[in-house]
């Protein structure tokens, strides 16, 4: 799976099949601090991800 983590401005590739929530846990990211976009669409943490998906993890924290 291709994953872009906005906060760190980095692209990673990872084998993953499962709930979005579990991917965030695996990446040590607090779901409260991010939005997840799959193939261009906003998804909930409950959604299942496939290895062929392209995922963006956007930080919700902005400003000072």
């Amino acid at each position: 799976m291709k994953i872009f983590i906005e906060k760190d401005k980095k692209n990673i590739e990872k084998k993953f099949f499962g709930k979005t929530f579990d991917l965030l846990k695996l990446l040590n990211i607090n779901p409260e601090t991010v939005l997840v976009v799959k193939n261009g669409e906003l998804i909930s943490e409950d959604e299942t991800l496939k290895d062929s998906d392209t995922v963006k993890i956007l930080s919700v924290i902005s400003g000072g």
Partner: peptide, 29 residues
């Protein structure tokens, strides 16, 4: 919540960067 505002801005397609102030890491907040 911050997450709700971010979701609204994203769904509305606002061209806003979700960027933090570079000095934020020095803040107690």
């Amino acid at each position: 919540s911050e997450k709700e505002v971010a979701a609204y801005a994203l769904l509305k397609g606002f061209e806003v960067g979700f960027t933090e102030c570079p000095y934020v890491h020095k803040a107690f907040r």
